[in-house]
């Protein structure tokens, strides 16, 4: 086994790793926005709206991520032409897919806040939107934070699936090197270590902070 290959390939792998990180950051923002919106809509009284939000969640939770990515990529290609951006397609696909899971996390957090809190806000004159923003949402932090970070960790690892639409992120870059050198072990170990280096600190950070997110 050629362990030196790790040092030789490292610059190339790190470049791809940077792309993986960019994709993860953009998708984390995307899925949080989608999740907050869909999760919030799932708790509204209007049945049609809540039903549509639920349908969104079920559709994306019920289909594999590669399928979602392929649909987004080829869908975009069909309507926008083949100049469509692979990175953007991957970010959109990851955002809508993980957004479904994030929506469920936010929904459970929102529903854990007692309805008496909403009543108190209502009699004080706060609008439904103000009540959500200033009374309900802050109280979901403690409940939502640990599973949300867990979801982000899955998302970071799932960026590797973007290879199915041809994005040369860390996984794809590694495969290319393996194809060329026939040295899978050192390369895949390096890749695994790079993912771990990002995911493990996040998981440590949750454990440190989950008790002190909300004061008192």
């Amino acid at each position: 086994m050629n362990w030196q290959l790790i040092w030789i390939s490292l610059p190339q792998l790190l470049r791809a790793f940077l792309l993986t990180l960019e994709l993860a950051v953009v998708s984390i923002i995307g899925c949080t926005v989608i999740g907050l919106l869909v999760g919030g809509l799932r708790t509204v009284r209007l049945r049609i709206v809540a039903g549509l939000a639920r349908a969104y969640v079920e559709v994306f939770r019920g289909s594999p991520l590669p399928i979602t990515l392929l649909f987004v990529y080829f869908g975009a290609a069909l309507y926008l032409g083949y100049s469509s951006n692979v990175f953007a397609a991957a970010a959109v696909g990851l955002s809508v897919y993980h957004g479904a899971y994030v929506a469920e996390i936010f929904r459970s957090g929102i529903q854990a806040v007692p309805s008496a809190q909403r009543e108190a806000a209502q009699t004080l004159g706060l609008s439904a939107m103000q009540t959500f923003r200033f009374v309900v949402l802050p109280q979901t932090r403690r409940i939502v934070f640990p599973p949300l970070i867990g979801q982000f960790i899955s998302l970071i690892k799932d960026t590797s699936i973007a290879f199915v639409i041809g994005l040369v992120e860390l996984m794809k870059a590694g495969q290319a090197i393996v194809d060329r050198t026939a040295e899978p072990i050192p390369i895949y170990l390096t890749i695994a270590a790079l993912y771990f280096v990002i995911c493990y600190p996040l998981s440590l950070w949750v454990r440190r902070n989950e008790r002190k997110i909300v004061p008192a």
């Binding site: 008496a116 009543e119 004159g125 004061p215």
Partner: peptide, 17 residues
């Protein structure tokens, strides 16, 4: 009427955060 009458609840319902 919201914001023009005050309501005090049995369980206080203060905002814990």
């Amino acid at each position: 009427i919201r914001g023009h009458v005050g309501m005090v609840f049995q369980q206080f319902n203060l905002f814990p955060h």
